[in-house]
Design a protein around this nucleic acid. Structure first.
Lengths: 201, 201
DNA sequence: ACACACATGTAATTGGTTACATGATTTC
DNA sequence: GAAATCATGTAACCAATTACATGTGTGT
């Protein structure tokens, strides 16, 4: 019974807040776990059908009674227990693939501006994300600090913040290093260590 | 001419060091970009064939002359320019999917030990990776500080270090929070803020 | 009337993993 | 001669994205 990860996200989202349509579920995903998880419609709608067929979710407020043709779903007891089973299983960390780091690693093969441009894009992306996250935090607190899941949501939020900050600090240093190297074409007479190392015995 | 990312990793690796077989290329990938990139044989060998057919790499030291049936390849001028083109294109960041954070986000749906166990696994994984990285650094320095790509390699290394450290610090705080909550079933009279927030106006 | 957001779905493609199959070379 | 590692490859499968197709409700 190999279920796709999409199925579990849907179950999780419906466990937090029942009676959502596919469209709404996607929006909720974007607004809650958006910065570390994404789902497309092409994945959500078929998953909803499958989950409903397996009785892990059930259609509520059908299209006939509600406005338009939207179909809302809620999680069933069976769905909840499947979600809990999945939660208890150790997470699998798939081998990461970071194209940014890959291009940077091969940076010497390109003109220096290329890598600088990549890092600047990276830096800006991270700045924006951090800004969004910091804005989001007080809102989340005001809006849902009373909900049972709140401490866990904050945990993921802090995780994001910590990594965003780490990325930004690293970006500064990286840019400083690359732009410095650009200027000094020939190394000065006494520069034994090109990059300072911490924790070097 | 939609080429898979695998093709570019191979080109990049061969650009750094020529005359490697598929088997060796994979090992090199693991040892150099391993902590942010992975490739499987099922992907490498077909890619090698395609790249050779497109004259971006060329077979060298064929099986007949060298020992066994291994086939080494080296990058062609055309291959190098394709690599450079790719490097100049802005990296695409695919929406991240982090199962660890996802399970943590839904943590309230499971027993408290479940999330604690996830974080501990995460913590240990990051500790090990940091240890490996810190060991690797002086070796890399001694072995290849003279190579042109070295500064870029160090950049990715530092990136890894920064994020690993951020993860470990976060883990400590997260575990402290969760294990504390486990103990104090009912909140003490004056505990207005469940989690301390930085940058809170 | 028009545009925009809401809303659901399918088909084609792809990038990639996993498992399987096979055999050579080295080392003990 | 057994085991481990080196070495190459293929077939089956799958999760997921993208693009496409279609239609409704709301606001201006």
């Amino acid at each position: 019974m190999q279920r796709s990860q999409t199925a579990f996200v849907i179950l999780g989202i419906l466990a937090i807040h029942d009676d959502q349509s596919g469209y709404e579920i996607r929006k909720t995903i974007q607004q809650s776990v958006g910065f570390f998880w994404g789902e497309s419609f092409g994945q959500i709608y078929p998953s909803l059908k499958r989950l409903a067929a397996d009785d892990l979710i059930a259609p509520s407020k059908s299209a006939s009674q509600a406005r338009s043709r939207r179909q809302e779903y809620s999680i069933t007891p069976a769905g909840r227990s499947v979600l809990q089973e999945w939660l208890a299983v150790p997470y699998r960390d798939d081998p990461p693939r970071d194209e940014f780091l890959l291009k940077l690693f091969f940076g010497v093969e390109a003109a220096p501006e290329v890598s600088v441009a990549h890092i600047r894009k990276f830096q800006e992306k991270n700045r924006n994300m951090l800004a969004t996250l910091l804005q989001l935090e007080p809102l989340a607190r005001a809006h849902s600090s009373h909900q049972r899941g709140f401490p866990f949501w904050m945990l993921t939020l802090r995780y994001g913040e910590a990594h965003l900050r780490a990325s930004l600090e690293w970006s500064e240093a990286a840019l400083a290093m690359l732009t410095l190297e650009e200027t000094q074409q020939s190394p000065s007479p006494q520069a034994p260590e090109p990059i300072p190392v911490s924790g070097n015995s």
